[in-house]
Design a binder for these strands. Structure first.
Lengths: 216, 216
DNA sequence: TCAAAAATACCGGTAAACCAGTAGATAAAA
DNA sequence: TTTTATCTACTGGTTTACCGGTATTTTTGA
């Protein structure tokens, strides 16, 4: 965490040039903030982070190459002192909590006002958790279904979940992945267990709910 | 349509201050463009339009108060010479076509680059239809699922689709609805046929896609 | 009222999914 | 290096889903 009277080195990771430009303009007013760079791909930022110190990252959790979730974890792993503020349009409670679980210090929806944005930046740098107004409301009023914990899947499990959603059967997947059908069955069983469901129908619904499979 | 050597009066309607700021910054570079105003609510813009001439509107089709679709139609009704360029993150073909149907002169996804944005503005002002690169691809190569007509389900079929999505098995549903399991099987078969899918996993995904089952 | 649509139900069969338990081989983290 | 997680694979089952065809009754709409 940088001292408050130091210059804060900030980076932006977002695949929308318009948003990047907007953030740059809003933050340019602040003398103690220096924008080190902006990136449209997660990998580019990780390369940058290897050779540069960054105090705070504004991170869009929907990126074309990597999931922002994974990127967040990678950032905190490589540079634990870097504060990550998630920036997104998703208003699902589960997603917000998930990104916090992955090490983010806060969550802003993209319709924040400039003053709100600056306040959140300051809070996050002080070591506090920062939420924009709308997000605070979402956090404080949880829905019933939100209580279900989001399971963490392994790489293979994610892959198989995707294939199942495409209607692939166990034998088909076994052939496609060059493993025994029995192996696929084990993965399927683990998926059912992790999601706490009884069959594929429920599995698909749960996965969609948690946005763990892309609709198309 | 304004002449190309006149100053173009432009307005922005978007509920994201960051995006507004970004657009302003990008368009400030262009001497022939003058930004008349930016609005976070559709109604505010309509009030403005009553007393002011606007050549071009950058319109976010997802607004808190009105649907951007309706707003677009209202704009064209009140001021037919005003060119509307839709700005959104939605990449569904049906949505793009719908907004064009409502009088928009083009569609940009928010991840457009600044050069792309300016090109589209110019094209739209020339009276052409303007699409950003990604949108062009969506328009020209419609996905398979776009062709699939939305099946019309009977009352019973909807009911069973819902129960299936809740993880109910055929015997369970038979008992719950006081009919033979064989009847349920017939309904299931008809559902698979109507959605043109091979198994429940695909069925759930198709149903979710067409919003025929509520995620929760 | 009469044809079409929907809901009901059956047979016989194959394929796939699901259950319970176990366990070796790797790969990654402590 | 040792532990832990992950991926792999098996046995031996039961249950459910899916396929193709057929057919009666009930409801509904033109």
């Amino acid at each position: 965490m940088p001292l408050m009277n130091d210059t804060i080195v900030l980076a932006i990771v977002d695949d929308h040039p318009i948003v990047i430009e907007g953030l740059r303009t809003l933050l340019k007013e602040e003398p103690q903030i220096s924008i080190a760079g902006s990136f449209t791909r997660g990998k580019d930022f990780m390369d940058f982070l290897q050779h540069n110190k960054v105090d705070l990252v504004l991170l869009d959790i929907m990126l074309p190459d990597t999931s922002g979730m994974d990127l967040c974890r990678d950032i905190k792993k490589m540079s634990p002192d870097t504060v990550v503020l998630a920036l997104s349009n998703h208003t699902e409670r589960s997603i917000i909590l998930q990104i916090l679980q992955n090490g983010a210090s806060g969550y802003l929806v993209k319709n924040v006002s400039s003053t709100e944005l600056l306040n959140c930046l300051k809070e996050a740098l002080k070591g506090e958790i920062a939420f924009s107004k709308e997000v605070k409301e979402i956090i404080t009023r949880p829905a019933q279904h939100e209580f279900k914990k989001v399971p963490t899947l392994t790489k293979r499990e994610k892959q198989i979940l995707q294939l199942v959603s495409q209607g692939k059967t166990t034998p088909m997947m076994a052939q496609e992945l060059n493993v025994s059908p029995l192996t696929i069955e084990t993965h399927r069983r683990n998926l059912l267990q992790k999601f706490d469901v009884k069959n594929v129908a429920e599995l698909m619904m749960a996965a969609v709910q948690h946005k763990m499979i892309t609709g198309i």
